[in-house]
Computed example of a mutant assay.
Amino acid sequence: MKLTGVELRRISLPLVSPFRTSFGTETTRDALLVRVVTTEAEGWGECVAMAGPLYSSEYVDAAADVLRRFFVPTLAAVDQLTAVGVARALEKFHGHRMAKAALETAVLDAELRAEGRPLARELGAVHDRVPCGVSVGIMPSIDELLEAVGNYLDEGYLRIKLKIQPGWDIEPVAAVREHFGDVLLQVDANTAYAVSDARHLARLDPYNLLLIEQPLDEEDILGHAELARHLKTPICLDESITSARAAAAAISLGACSIINVKPGRVGGYLESRRIHDVCQAHGIPVWCGGMLETGLGRAANIALAALPGFTLPGDTSASSRYYQTDITTPFTLEAGHLPVPTTPGIGVEPLEPELAAVTTHTEWLKL
């Protein structure tokens, strides 16, 4: 397979409601899509970088630049291109995992489409549907939080994740637990705390949470190991896990007992599968996180979440959780689950009218 062309497409989708975290508030999803054209087939990938370097050092404009100047020209020079070979070809370039993931996914989509194989089967999926949780941002008030959580439970979501930060942690958790009883509940701190907050975070222990996600800075692996000794609530790592090697190190140091796998954060779905395998070997459960993906990224995430080690509901919510109109056929919740795509490649492709309506810029890279 030979790369013959690449399109970079910027889109802007309004969210159905503002999404507040410790990083700030998002009202739109400004995303970068990658379409590759090869001698065998076309494929799509979605870059999950945010508009600014808030969740990680990556951001959309930088992703487009590194794809345009370095990654695409490098792959264009490869005569026998395969998805497995993308990481090897780009290995000399440091970082930019989200941009690499988008390009690798597009190549993987094209390769699997050409061969008539679905992504779920390629990765090793064992389920035809996956259980779904939902992430609830920081709310202006407890009453609004309880209303939002109640609505999501009524829709059928099986697990609730609450974003927390200093000043918005114990009270909202207590309110949700008291109001909704034994619902599956977890919290996500997005690096908002320090080891010195151990005594305060231990106040979450009585609420029987599934986990507390990424309480400390992404580079503070030893701090997480120290914090784990003071909490009964299991610690899950997100931002700290950038590769299978990082996952193995965190596990061996006792820094976590659960891992959130986000394909964009780790460089793609092939590395995500390696992380899954490492965790399975160590008896560590994993679940699939979300980055406000459109239907393109959501389809691939669902395929990943169908692997055997994904034993906790992920953030693979229905399309309507974030978007009034998605750019693909929407994913609809059925009894708390979403179906795993079964057609070749990632299993979906953009709907032309919907894609055109939200496109803000397109760029064709001549090879």
Score class of each variant (00 low, 15 high):
226 E>R: 13
226 E>K: 13
226 E>F: 11
226 E>W: 13
227 L>C: 03
228 A>E: 03
229 R>H: 12
230 H>M: 14
231 L>F: 05
232 K>Q: 14
233 T>R: 01
233 T>E: 04
233 T>H: 03
234 P>Y: 03
234 P>F: 04
234 P>K: 05
235 I>N: 03
236 C>A: 15
237 L>N: 12
239 E>Q: 12
239 E>F: 07
241 I>W: 04
241 I>G: 07
243 S>A: 09
243 S>I: 09
245 R>M: 13
246 A>W: 07
246 A>Q: 09
246 A>I: 00
246 A>N: 11
246 A>V: 02
246 A>L: 07
247 A>C: 09
247 A>S: 09
248 A>L: 14
248 A>V: 04
249 A>G: 04
250 A>N: 13
250 A>S: 15
250 A>D: 11
251 I>W: 08
251 I>P: 08
253 L>E: 12
253 L>G: 00
255 A>N: 05
255 A>R: 01
255 A>T: 02
256 C>G: 05
257 S>C: 12
257 S>P: 01
258 I>L: 06
258 I>A: 02
259 I>G: 11
261 V>E: 06
262 K>S: 03
263 P>M: 02
263 P>R: 00
264 G>R: 01
264 G>I: 08
264 G>H: 03
264 G>Y: 03
265 R>Q: 13
267 G>P: 14
267 G>D: 13
268 G>Q: 05
269 Y>E: 05
270 L>I: 14
270 L>H: 09
271 E>I: 02
271 E>H: 06
272 S>T: 08
272 S>A: 15
272 S>C: 10
273 R>N: 09
274 R>K: 15
274 R>S: 10
274 R>N: 10
275 I>M: 00
275 I>G: 02
276 H>E: 13
277 D>K: 10
277 D>F: 01
279 C>T: 12
280 Q>D: 13
280 Q>E: 15
282 H>F: 15
282 H>D: 14
283 G>F: 10
283 G>Q: 06
283 G>W: 07
283 G>K: 06
284 I>R: 08
284 I>V: 15
285 P>G: 13
286 V>Q: 03
286 V>A: 10
287 W>R: 05
288 C>I: 14
289 G>Y: 05
290 G>D: 10
290 G>M: 07
291 M>A: 12
291 M>K: 01
292 L>D: 01
292 L>A: 11
292 L>E: 01
293 E>A: 01
293 E>F: 00
295 G>F: 00
295 G>L: 00
295 G>N: 02
297 G>F: 00
298 R>M: 06
298 R>W: 03
299 A>C: 02
299 A>G: 04
302 I>Q: 06
303 A>E: 04
305 A>E: 14
305 A>W: 01
305 A>K: 07
306 A>C: 10
306 A>I: 12
308 P>K: 11
